[in-house]
Structure formats: C-alpha cells, structure tokens
Amino acid sequence: MSILLDNETRAVVQGITGRIGSVQTAWMLDYGTKLVAGVTPGRGGETVHDLPVYDDVYEAVEKHGANATVLFVPGPFLRDAVLEAIDAGIKLVVAIPEHVPLHDVLQMKSAAEKNGAWLLGPNTPGIISPGIGKLGIMPGNMFTEGKIGIISRSGTLSYEMAGLLNEVGLGQSTMVGVGGDPVVGSRMIKILQEFEVDPETEAVIIVGEIGGSSEEEAAEFIKEMKKPVIAYLAGRTAPSGRRMGHAGAIIKKEGQGTVESKIKAFKKAGALVASKPSDVAVLIKECL
C-alpha cells in the first residue's frame, strides 16, 4: 500500500503536448504509472504516447473516471488549470511548475481546501509510490519499494534521502513532495496523518527546511503518533530573509521558522533529528 497515489489512481497529464509534459509522460508510463489521458485546450482528438488528448479535464473524468492530475502547464497558466481540475472533481492535484505567482497559489490552495482535494506543490517533484507509479519528475531509479514514508519540502534532497535509504536496504512506501515554495497546497501535518494510518508505512522521514512553520505544526501531531519519525532540516547556514514594512513582524509568531526552532519542536515531540542526510539511515535502523 501507499498513500494518496495507489492502485486506484487514474491520472491525467495536463499540459501533455508540451515538450516537458510529453517527455515526462513517457517516463511516468515507463515507470508503470496508470495514466489514462492527457489534457491540452485546443488539442483534443490528438494522442500522445498512445494516450488520448482532451480539451478539458471534465471529458477525461467522464470518459476514464480520472481522479488525479499532474500538471506541466507553464506557471502563468497553472492557476486556471488547477482550478479546472478541482472543479472537475479531481482529488489529487500534483502541480509541478515553479515560479508560480503567490496569489495564484493562494487561490488554488483555497479551492483545494473547499473541495477536499489534495494539492501538492507548486514547485514539487511530485509524488511516487514505488512499484505503483509516479506523478512527477523524480528519477524513478532513485526509489525502491518498501515501508518508509518520506515527506519533503525539497525535491532533490528527497531523491538523496531515498538513495541513502536504498543503500541500507530500506525502500519507500510513498514519497510526497509538498513543494518548495513558501506557500504550498497541502500542509505537512496532513500528510503525516495519512502515513500514520497507512498499514504499509512503518516509519516516516521528514525532510524540512529553514522558514515557515510547517515543521513546528507537524511536530504537534508527532506527539500523538505511534510510528517513529526522523527529521532532517536543511539551511542552518542560510541567510534569513529580508523584509520590508511592519506587517511581517506583526504577524510573525515568536520562535518559529529557524532550523533551531524546528529541531527543538521535533525533539520535544519525540522525533529523532539527524544532523546530515546520511545520519537518517543510521537513526532509522535504530527505530525499526
């Protein structure tokens, strides 16, 4: 088993006729992902890698019962494509593009929350359930089947983490890239809750970063979890952001957002914290 992306997933690729969309579709199919159709407005009737292309997501839902989407549309068009998918009833939306306007992210997030859809990203490598499929751009060869869940804010660091786990013989149930943007569609804590109830996941790794408060929030749930959680946090040496105006200072919650505050929150909640990625593999062996 796995979370979010499983044997019931029937995905469409929005932006399938683009250069990146087409290449990535081929790689997702090679990996064994169950893709049912592609969507590009104005290109209905064509086929890409033997998948039918439709003009809108609604048609893919009607004809194929599509319930997930992965998007390769350019950043400027992402919002409308995501809002369309959510309106068409898609419950798992994987938004790959980076450089998406923040206001668009806020709108997509609001729509996803109102409709009970999972929105991963933007700026995410996607989601992979090894042995089942992948909706995203992560190299399939970096992941193996197993029982470790990974939640990551960083795409490439999640590949590294999976690679390090493979070396000690630990495969992954699902790796969820929540997205590297300051604001993303789904909070870390929600995904942690899914892993906690997934019978095939035995432990969860969180790959966090400096900034925001999603790790601190996730720590609140870790306190109640039965499964072990191991965290790694990048960015001790990163400079803190520059801001202007007073608004940022007024809304800021004290003692959140730094690597230190995140480490403290995780430790207090009973999670193990690794000082470098390869230590995660050592720590996880001790918990299992």
Binding site: S154, T156, L157, E160, G180, V207, E209, I210, A234, R236
Partner: peptide, 9 residues
C-alpha cells in the same frame, strides 16, 4: 545545487 534544499544541505 539543483534545488534549494540540496544546496542548503
């Protein structure tokens, strides 16, 4: 680094 997390790590 390709990716902020990897570069920071």
């Amino acid at each position: 680094g390709s990716g902020a997390g990897l570069a920071m790590a």
